[in-house]
Design a binder for these strands. Structure first.
Length: 797
DNA sequence: AAATTATGAA
């Protein structure tokens, strides 16, 4: 299949077409623009012609010159038209209108408005024919301010009752996003024609207000007007907005009854509607019946295949389009194909499309570039996404959001946060809820709760705290930072909880070892008749696994399929292996893996490897590691784990062998660190760390807390290192785990500062003990090899 | 002498 794509890409590489496209893109526009500005500044020549108008009022109209002017304008030859215009005498409103129309039609909106201003300056009065063009130019510039000025002028001159002008105004306000103003114009009109209604309906499509759209659609019929193809096309767009299947079919009936079935644009809209409503079969049926397929219909179908999870069919449609010879792919075709590449995770295909777009002169193109950023992000290539992003000439909110998502999906958290801050500080692009919920996972993973709280207040200021997506990310962020209470508070206050909200809060309790609360929340969710999805069960099963709720884990695992019809995925099997491994039942875990219907991944085996280490089963560990290395030869963690197990067993030759293997493969041991933030400073600890200047205090605190939970530390062992003591050193390692050291540092500092505030003297070691022993330490520390991934809550009465 | 509304897009 991929050779067909490659062939079809290279076949249409036509140098002539490429140069044509490029020319349209830039050359013409800039040339025109320059000459007009130069000529407009020489207003003396036009001035003199005005003088001549006054002198020769009686002189007969030169119709042949006027006719030439019109034909230049109609063929888009504005330079020639301008020369003729300047040389002409007897210029009246009609000539000016022709010029304004010409500039509007070729997209030189600024020049059209300049001409409109100039004609007034020259004393020529604009009439009802002038304004539709001028208003269209405002739409082209998306300039509400110019539009409002013109509207004011219309009210002053009394032209605001002209139906054509009012219709233009409705279109303008609809397109610049001021639907209320469009409504105002519409309501004030005394005679509304079909175009007025159609324009209003189109405005509602753009505003995304399908309710008012259909209200309008019905109201116009009550006034005795029959919807034509314009209104029907908008209504079809409204159906995909609303996603009402019945409404779509109802509107399809209008098409048939009105006899619009043969109209290509109507056919396209119908296909698009059925695609967006997920009714792909209907769309394909209609697509097959279209007699002359153009680029747009193909694009609608390609987009439909892509959005309905049929990426290969999307490419099939591209090949059909190229083989038909009637239609050529354009920039939008590329935009529609890129999500298909992302779904296939096929980087080669994505790059082919990128190359095709470059060769055909489609770039620069804001939407296409954004789609490229999105595709590279989803194909796991944040570097390429970044490259496209920073080469873009223009960027908008959506392109920034796409880049942020690409960073976050690929774990480039720092970059995501920096980009977010850049956008925020630069200020020209206004953030939305999507921006925030894209970047929050990056804040959740990085160790600074302080900055997370800053973002939270920023969210409240911007009013995004009511948004469900944002709140879900916030719940996750607080949970990952160990502040379960705040996470719960946000969850409880959230007005409209969706399935993600529930999944997140269940997982939050799960990762903190509060399996019971997690399961209670799961029941509560079911009582509220919210249907769990596949991710819900990942949350529930991990909660059971972490808290050692073996029976409940099995219950939920089997009820997934029987009660909810959800087939367990690889991640669910992973949770179960974890559960069995934690319970120490290695044989069961192993049989479970062998009997599961899916091919085990490295992560599944990794779960069993961890379990075999905790149970000291070195034979199983070796076997499992073999499986992992066959899947991922560079899995550093597994090498280290195996090496540690050999060390614990005193098998030094094997330790050495593993180290050599790692050297050969160029793998380095990564050192895990734990960070904690105190008074705006970040402190980093490694396991058994003694490098901190306050290590004495930290180990003091550690000793005290260990005493409270019944663990003891043979203090000298970490001071010296002798191979024979390695066994003990290894088994003691969790005692001085980096997470514990970080927490003890925080606890100690807290006590010191509290005591200092009270007594204004430095507390001694005994002092510290006295206070720490009395501290209520809230957490079930014994449950885990570390106490917790989250800070321990310490309160002093 | 002349005008206004439509299809596919992240």
């Amino acid at each position: 299949m991929s050779t067909t794509f490659a062939q079809s890409f290279s076949r249409s590489k036509d140098p002539q077409k490429v140069s044509q496209n490029r020319e349209i893109n830039k050359a013409d526009k800039s040339r025109n623009l320059l000459s007009i500005k130069q000529r407009l500044s020489k207003s003396t020549s036009i001035n003199s012609s005005r003088v001549k108008i006054k002198k020769t009022v009686i002189k007969r109209y030169d119709t042949s010159l006027t006719r030439s002017l019109c034909s230049y304008v109609d063929s888009g030859l504005m330079n020639e038209a301008l020369s003729l215009f300047e040389s002409m005498q007897n210029l009246d409103t009609f000539h000016w209108n022709v010029m304004i129309k010409g500039y509007t039609n070729i997209g030189l909106y600024k020049e059209a408005i300049d001409f409109y201003l100039l004609m007034q300056y020259q004393g020529v009065k604009p009439d009802n024919f002038t304004y539709p063009f001028v208003i269209k130019s405002c739409v082209g510039l998306l300039s509400l301010i110019e539009g409002l000025k013109i509207h004011a002028r219309l009210i002053k001159t009394g032209l605001d009752s002209d139906v054509f002008i009012c219709n233009s105004l409705i279109v303008m306000y609809g397109k610049v996003g001021c639907i209320e103003l469009a409504e105002e114009v519409f309501v004030k009109m005394t005679n509304r024609d079909l175009v007025s209604w159609n324009s209003m309906i189109t405005g509602y499509v753009l505003a995304g207000d399908e309710w008012k759209l259909f209200w309008c659609f019905r109201k116009m019929q009550a006034f005795g007007l029959k919807p034509d193809r314009f209104g029907i096309i908008s209504a079809l767009a409204g159906c995909s907005l609303a996603n009402y299947e019945r409404l779509g079919k109802e509107t399809h009936c209008y098409v048939i009854r009105g006899g619009h079935e043969s109209n290509l644009m109507v056919q396209t809209s119908l296909i698009d509607m059925y695609c967006k409503g997920g009714n792909l079969d209907y769309a394909v049926e209609l697509f097959k019946k279209v007699p002359c397929l153009n680029t747009v219909v193909h694009n609608a179908m390609i987009g439909g295949y892509a959005r309905n999870g049929c990426p290969l069919e999307a490419f099939g449609c591209l090949v059909e389009m190229q083989q038909s010879g009637n239609a050529n792919p354009d920039a939008i075709t590329m935009v529609n194909l890129l999500p298909a590449c992302a779904q296939l995770r096929d980087l080669f295909l994505g790059k082919s499309i990128h190359g095709f777009a470059i060769r055909n002169g489609f770039l620069p193109h804001l939407v296409l570039e954004t789609a490229l950023v999105d595709m590279y992000g989803k194909c796991g290539e944040p570097k390429l996404a970044e490259r496209v992003f920073y080469l873009m000439k223009k960027r908008c909110l959506i392109s920034c959001n796409a880049m942020l998502a690409a960073y976050v999906q690929n774990e480039w958290k720092r970059k995501a946060i920096n980009l977010f801050l850049d956008i925020h500080e630069e200020g020209s692009i206004k953030l939305d809820a999507m921006t925030i919920s894209s970047v929050l996972p990056a804040y959740a993973e990085l160790a600074s709760l302080r900055v997370g709280i800053q973002i939270h207040s920023c969210i409240i200021k911007l009013g995004f705290n009511v948004n469900t997506f944002v709140s879900n990310s916030l719940v996750d962020m607080y949970a990952k930072h160990g502040n379960l209470r705040e996470a719960r508070k946000i969850f409880d206050r959230l007005q409209s909880k969706d399935i993600v909200s529930w999944n997140t809060i269940i997982m939050a309790y799960g990762i903190h070892g509060c399996g019971k609360i997690a399961i209670d929340l799961f029941s509560e969710m079911q009582e509220k008749s919210i249907k769990p999805n596949s991710s819900t069960f990942v949350s529930v099963l991990s909660s059971c696994s972490i808290s050692g709720l073996i029976d409940q884990g099995w219950e939920h695992f089997s009820s997934m399929k029987t009660d909810y019809g959800i087939d367990p995925g690889i991640e669910h099997y992973g949770c179960m292996v974890d559960l069995l491994g934690r319970s120490g039942n290695l044989d069961l875990a192993r049989n479970f893996i062998n009997e599961m219907p899916l091919v085990p991944t490295a992560r599944i085996w990794g779960s069993l490897l961890a379990a075999s280490r905790n149970n000291g089963d070195i034979v199983l560990a070796e076997e499992v590691a073999e499986q992992i290395f066959s899947l991922e030869h560079d899995n550093t963690g597994s090498y280290i784990l195996l090496s540690n197990m050999y060390a614990e067993a005193g098998r030094w030759e094997d330790v050495e062998r593993i180290r050599c293997l790692m050297n050969i493969k160029g793998l380095e041991q990564t050192i895990g660190t734990s960070m904690i933030e105190l008074n705006t400073k970040t402190f980093r600890f490694i396991n058994g760390d003694r490098s901190h200047s306050e290590s004495y205090m930290i180990y003091n605190v550690l000793g005290i807390i260990l005493g409270q939970i019944g663990e003891t530390m043979n203090s000298p062992s970490f001071l010296r290192f002798r191979p024979r003591e390695l066994i003990r050193k290894r088994s003691e390692l969790p005692l001085t785990h980096s997470v514990r050291l970080a927490l003890c540092f925080e606890a100690g500092k807290f006590v010191v500062s509290t005591v200092l505030k009270r007594n204004s003297e430095t507390p001694g070691s005994e002092h510290l003990t006295n206070i720490l022993v009395r501290l209520p330490i809230k957490s079930n520390m014994e449950d885990s090899i570390y106490w917790h991934t989250a800070p321990v809550e310490i309160t002093v009465k």
